[in-house]
Structures are given as C-alpha cells and as structure tokens.
Amino acid sequence: MHNKNAVYFANNVDVDSEEQLPGTMFLKRVTFDYIKRNNIKPKQLEILRDAFGNNTIRNYFNNFEVLKMEFFRRKEIRHWIESIDSTNGIFYYRWGDAVLRYLTLALFAEQHEVLHRVDYNFPYCHKCR
C-alpha cells in the first residue's frame, strides 16, 4: 500500500438490498443531496454511479480490510460521516460501515488509491470447509 500511495485495500464487492435492510435506498438520496449541498466532485464518479442499483447498494465485504487512518481522519471525510450520522440512518436503517466505507472511497479517494484483493490474487476464504 505504501509503495502505491493507497489508502484502502479492499476485499470483494458485496451488495445490501432494500428487501433485506429496509431504508437502505434512502442512503442514495442522502448521498446525492450531500454532494450537491457541499459542492463535492466525487473522485470515482463511475463507482458512485454503480453503487446504487434498483433496490441495492454496493459495499466492500470488509471482514478483511487494510486502511490508512490518516485518510479517514481528514476534515472533509469527518464532515461527510458526521452528516450521515446526523440522519440517524445508521440506527434506523442499519447503514453499516461496509456501505459507508464504499461510498466514502467513491467520494474522496482516487481510483489508484483503492487496491482490490482480487487484483493481487490473494486468496481469501470466509467460512470455508
């Protein structure tokens, strides 16, 4: 990560669905309202556009992740997270760390700053037999 100036090493991409977690899709409106209100130019616009499906939202399967804490402590990222926190969506709709991490990186991290496990052929097994 250091050699590549990366801020995040991601595991697989996963999805949450409105059916499983009612209120999940409210996060789309909250995210785009935040972008407009704060004049944010998302660093990974394509990833952000792909984040939201008809009734799904992408996230990083984050039971394995490596991150650069300095990045996540930046003022603009703290402001984003505080804004999300003020909606109470974390409590009402169970907007979890995985989906918030995915959106945070789409908004504030350049593509080259996010590494993906599958690109490095690192094996990973959750609940393997």
Rank of each mutant, 00 (worst) to 15 (best):
V114A: 02
R94I: 07
S86I: 06
P123F: 12
N38H: 15
I77K: 00
D119W: 00
K43N: 13
C128I: 03
R74A: 13
K43T: 11
Q111T: 10
L48D: 11
I77N: 03
I84G: 05
F61L: 12
N121Y: 02
N12S: 11
M25N: 12
R58C: 14
E46T: 11
A10P: 06
D16N: 09
L45Y: 07
K75P: 03
V99L: 15
N38W: 09
R94Q: 13
N63Y: 08
E110L: 08
F9I: 06
F64V: 09
Y8W: 07
A98Y: 02
D85A: 13
D14P: 00
R74G: 07
F32T: 13
M69D: 11
Y8Q: 05
R74W: 01
F9T: 00
E82M: 09
E70T: 12
R78Y: 07
R37V: 11
I35T: 08
R117A: 00
P42I: 04
C128W: 03
L100D: 00
N121D: 11
K36G: 04
R74F: 02
T56H: 05
V30H: 07
F122D: 01
T56R: 06
I57W: 02
V99T: 15
Y124T: 03
F9C: 02
R94F: 12
I35F: 12
R117Y: 00
